[in-house]
Structure formats: C-alpha cells, structure tokens
Amino acid sequence: MARFTSPNWDRLNAEQQRRLGELGVKKAPRARKTATKTTTAVGSRAGGTAFQKGLQALQQYIAREGGMPGRAGVQEMPDGDVRRVGVWPANQKQRRNKLDQTQLAALAEAGVDWAAG
C-alpha cells in the first residue's frame, strides 16, 4: 500500500482523500523530529582541544618563522597533522565572544594583537 508523504495531505479536501484511499494511498504517519544538537561553550570542554591544537601550531609556526603567518600559512605538527595557521587567528577573532579569558590571554601572549585589548 502506498503512503502519501507530502505535507499537503491535510490540504486535500475529504473527497480527494477518500479517492486516494480507494487507490490504496494513505496518509503517512508524521515523522518524529530529531533532537536538535545544542552547542556547548568553547573552553576546556568541546572546543578546548581544538583550540589548544591550533594555538600550539601557531606557536610552533611563530618559533620557526619568527613572526605571524600570512593567510596561507600552514604548520605540520609532529603527529603529521597539518594545521592552517594562517586563517586560524582570524577564525578565533570571529569567535572571540566565545573564548574564555585564558584562551584570550594565550592568544595575546602568542602575539595576536586583537586578543590583547
């Protein structure tokens, strides 16, 4: 038996629904909504590990090159992971209202000018 999954089933008049029913078409049961993912604060939990890896890559790049990376700067980590340290500070700047004071202080110490003020 076919199921009619269109959200417009309820817009059909009773006669249209009856005729479709005679053809074996029935209204599909309403799908359950899945729980929406809630965001967690960036800090020592969800974003903390990613932040630390990005900060470590930035610090290694600065130690190697002697200054802040350009937009295309990358840093290969000892574990083989390649980090895009050129865009990472800009991404952090866009999310700065979600960074905690420890993270902002670490960025300022690394030489990220916007994090100092």
Rank of each mutant, 00 (worst) to 15 (best):
A50C: 01
T36H: 01
A46E: 10
L12E: 07
A63M: 03
N8G: 04
V42D: 06
G54Q: 03
A28C: 07
R64T: 15
F4A: 13
T40W: 07
A63L: 09
A31V: 13
L20C: 03
R11S: 12
A41I: 07
A14H: 13
A28S: 15
A31T: 13
A31E: 14
T5P: 01
T38L: 14
K37H: 01
G21M: 08
I62M: 11
K33L: 11
T40A: 13
S44L: 05
T40H: 12
R64E: 15
L55Y: 04
G43T: 10
T34C: 00
T5G: 15
A63W: 04
Y61L: 06
E22K: 13
N13C: 13
S44T: 11
L55P: 00
A50W: 02
Q17M: 11
Q60M: 14
W9Y: 05
Q16N: 06
R30P: 05
A28R: 11
T39I: 11
K37D: 00
Q17A: 14
L12A: 11
T5E: 14
G48F: 04
L12Y: 08
A57V: 09
Q60C: 01
L58A: 09
G66H: 05
R18W: 11
Q60G: 02
N8M: 12
Q17E: 10
T36Q: 09
V42N: 07
N8P: 00
L20R: 06
A41P: 06
G48N: 02
F51R: 01
A28I: 08
G21P: 09
V42I: 13
A41V: 11
T39E: 14
R19M: 10
T40M: 09
T36F: 00
D10M: 03
E15D: 14
R32Q: 11
G47A: 07
R19C: 02
T40G: 12
T36K: 12
G47L: 05
